[in-house]
Design a protein around this nucleic acid. Structure first.
Lengths: 138, 138
DNA sequence: TTCCTTATTGCAAATAATTTGCATTAACAA
DNA sequence: TTGTTAATGCAAATTATTTGCAATAAGGAA
């Protein structure tokens, strides 16, 4: 039997946090999202499952999840913050400027170049942000 | 005699805009900035030269300059918009996370890879954002 | 130069996104 | 079951930016 990846809630509990109904639901919404919803959208989806979840709680819960490293918050060009479950493996994003959809990708080549460039400029790379914006080819 | 690069104000005039005292000063502040100041900082500097410049005017002027393509506005991680005079030549940014300073760089290699990746994903690259974050090496 | 039209400005109020104070509720350990 | 206290909901506060509107001033016409 293979070790299962712990759920958001399990990780949360492991941090000594209380497992509330609203946290369970917000975690569920995030886990089952295949897109990169923004906070308002998350709240909308959460309220569908339990209409007693306030927007502040969504904000607070996201902040906690982010601190523990369970999710990542991205701010793409000219929009609100958008959320995705941390996948463990790093990737960058291509944003479809027609639809707003987000496509994930990863390039070892680019990762390597970034470290190299930082080094050449006299810096130790601690993070980066790479976003491509494009229109689908016909 | 070689053609001189037109000033922000000249470009502005060429667009049929009125040349006001505040626009002259804001243009001056931007042109003489060697860093990437945010709006509040620009306003602070502008007020030093003429204390009758309001923050809204700075915002409005920046919007106009940006529309004409005279400046670029960047939103680096977790901060306000920061402004730089458009240089004509594209470059990316490395942000010193200790000091907040911004270093410009350009890598043909990375530019090329980006176009290639987008293409591979079925997209025509229309824009991108690349920011490196790092700490200076000792 | 002076006058006239209308873009531009300053100010205060409006938005928009997010955060916070506080009284109430509910997790969960004893 | 109960007591402690983290978490919640709500409304109000923040922060960054935009906008309505009356007053001002650029710049072409006379």
């Amino acid at each position: 039997m293979r070790a299962r990846k712990p759920t958001l809630i399990e990780m949360c509990k492991a941090q000594g946090r209380r497992i509330t109904g609203q946290r369970k639901i917000i975690a569920e919404v995030i886990s089952s999202a295949s897109d990169h919803p923004d906070v308002l959208e998350l709240h909308r989806r959460a309220v569908l499952k339990d209409n007693r979840i306030s927007l502040s709680t969504v904000y607070r819960t996201l902040k906690i999840f982010a601190e523990i490293g369970l999710i990542e918050q991205h701010s793409f060009e000219g929009g609100r913050f958008r959320v995705e479950r941390a996948s463990g493996s790093h990737h960058d994003h291509l944003i479809d400027t027609d639809s707003g959809k987000v496509i994930e990708f990863r390039s070892e080549e680019i990762e390597r170049l970034q470290t190299e460039i930082a080094l050449k400029l006299g810096f130790e790379l601690t993070g980066h942000r790479l976003e491509l914006y494009g229109r689908p080819l016909k």
